[in-house]
Design a binder for these strands. Structure first.
Lengths: 336, 336
DNA sequence: TTGTAAGCGTTATCAT
DNA sequence: ATGATAACGCTTACAA
């Protein structure tokens, strides 16, 4: 029941009294091998339960048919949807997926990249950790010629492949929806200022307000560190304002969950005293008795799929230095 | 920017005019190599940006430092928590995780196993797809001596490692909670009959009722295929019963979400006309205005961690045939 | 303390 | 159509 070393090509060859190279060729349907031999070899391989040793093949071919995927957190629906999309593309290409969660910690992210490099993955897909500032690892990766495609949370660099969501389209829709319903006093509860994602939201917010002719004086921006306490603190600030905003755009749906709960505690009635829209469009809303007014879909599956496709393009072409792709998908408001 | 082949040990050796074996040993801190040589080698390796070619090492050592994890669906919090726990253990052991989602389809599951086998993973962790009936792949895996540990959804076999949750403890608590609150008419909305998980729930249900002295005539069991429609159909049956149950245990929280929604449509008031308890203890309840009465925690992280630990035990001991572990964690009712 | 050489399983090149 | 041989990069007896 144990101890049987896996069958090798050599053993098949010996048994059949032919050479290993013939066996190899037969197994790979090489045209120059006679039909009979091919059949004989395949039959014997079957009998001996031959399984090619991929580690040897990976080694020889300098290719692992493996891509590494780095995400902040799988428990966020956004990313679990993304990974599913990636898996599907990978499966079609007969690739396997190595997984790493950065948990939004930069050093974890670097470790994972290091591991992936050691494993000689053929490519890397990454949605950056929210704390990543240092892009030096790109240099190292460039040396190894491992292609890398960023998606969702992408770096502010020119010469890299990236796929991301344009936050401003959704923001415009959100502000329009608010203003059209009579709101004049609108707040943004944004993420940490250090984040690119926050900067983008802030800009989009300002521009959208401007477009709708709302005075900036009526626009408040507060920040949260995205923890529960931070979210509540942000909400507290909003609520304590002299003229309390009646509409809030928040960083994402998770934040909104906390905001709504806090608001309720303060006796603020959802969708009456105060209205919310946030990014993500998480599926759970449909089960809530009192969902927020809307949520902005960012299409994680589309983003991830496109990113994977670009990555495989790089891999297939073996051109590490193909012109960098910069793909943007508009985000879209979904009213609840 | 391109074309540079990665540095090899040989090149370092040549540059230093010593033998490759010395370089290899120095790099691995082999005690027999002089300190000076070791330093010199390491310095040169650094300078030449040497990265060991793991594919060669994997090949040589017949080990990939990779484990494969197969889960039904990452978007279920249960499994995303599980994978995080597994990742943590793997990280400590310097292992990498290959990921595959079965999406509860048996053939996908088999494909993934095939791929993992080809990749020569050192071990496999799997929570079976809900449709998996055929355990033949175990035979094949046994031949390759790849250790495998089942968790959560485990097969009904004696001689395999498995870690799972004892559904009955939570069920007993649930039934007790119901009965103590005066409910006499209790229903179980169970999963597909083909599932082991359903059989276990059904048995636990019957036994718990018996323990509490509830007449079986007052206990209804209906099945759902776990789709939204199926869940609603199951609920409809319950609601149409002559004496409608006032308490429902359901297969899991996802099912309960649909049940509650349907109940509301029919004008049934939650936690007044009807009370719910289900398995999973999903985190979202805390944000619901009207959560069900309770949920049964199954500790995915504990299960997954233990399973991973057992797997690494198998791997480390290189004893494929260690006595099969059978670890059970009690489930626990959490009132909301 | 260091060097030599064999070998892991496969494939590709060159012969035959 | 098939065989012999080398090579991928690394480790590890065995020698020196």
């Amino acid at each position: 029941m144990a101890g049987n070393k896996p069958t090798t090509i050599k053993e098949i060859a010996r048994k059949l009294k032919i050479s290993p190279s013939t066996v190899s060729r037969a197994l790979n349907d090489h045209p120059s091998i006679g039909l009979v031999t091919t059949m004989r070899v395949k039959k014997m391989a079957e009998e001996m339960a031959y399984e090619p040793n991929q580690t040897a093949i990976f080694f020889k071919q300098r290719k692992t048919f493996t891509i590494g995927v780095i995400l902040p957190k799988l428990s966020e629906p956004f990313f679990s949807e993304a990974i599913s999309a990636i898996e599907n593309v990978a499966e079609d290409k007969k690739y396997t997926v190595l997984l790493g969660q950065s948990l939004d910690e930069e050093n974890r992210e670097l470790n994972i990249i290091q591991t992936f490099k050691k494993h000689r993955v053929d490519g890397i897909l990454i949605s950056l950790s929210k704390t990543t500032g240092d892009m030096d690892f790109l240099q190292t990766l460039a040396k190894t010629e491992i292609p890398i495609v960023f998606f969702d949370c992408v770096p502010d660099l020119k010469d890299v492949h990236k796929v991301y969501s344009d936050l401003s389209s959704g923001m415009e829709e959100a502000i329009s929806a608010f203003v059209d319903r009579g709101h004049q006093n609108i707040a943004l509860i944004n993420g940490p200022e250090s984040l690119l994602a926050s900067k983008e939201r802030a800009e989009a917010f300002q521009q959208a307000l401007q477009k709708k002719g709302i005075d900036k004086k009526n626009a408040f921006i507060v920040h949260t560190d995205l923890t529960e306490k931070g979210n509540e603190a942000a909400m507290e600030k909003i609520c304590n304002l002299a003229d309390r905003p009646s509409a809030v755009v928040s960083f994402n749906d998770f934040v909104t969950l906390d905001l709504i709960r806090y608001a309720k505690q303060r006796g603020i009635v959802l969708n009456q005293d105060m209205f919310f829209i946030s990014y993500a469009n998480y599926p759970l809303w449909k089960y809530m008795d009192n969902p927020p007014m809307g949520s902005i879909e960012q299409y994680p599956d589309q983003q991830a799929q496109k990113a994977a496709e670009i990555l495989f393009d790089c891999i297939d072409k073996k051109e590490y230095t193909t012109t960098p792709q910069d793909v943007v998908y508009p985000s879209k408001l979904v009213l609840k």
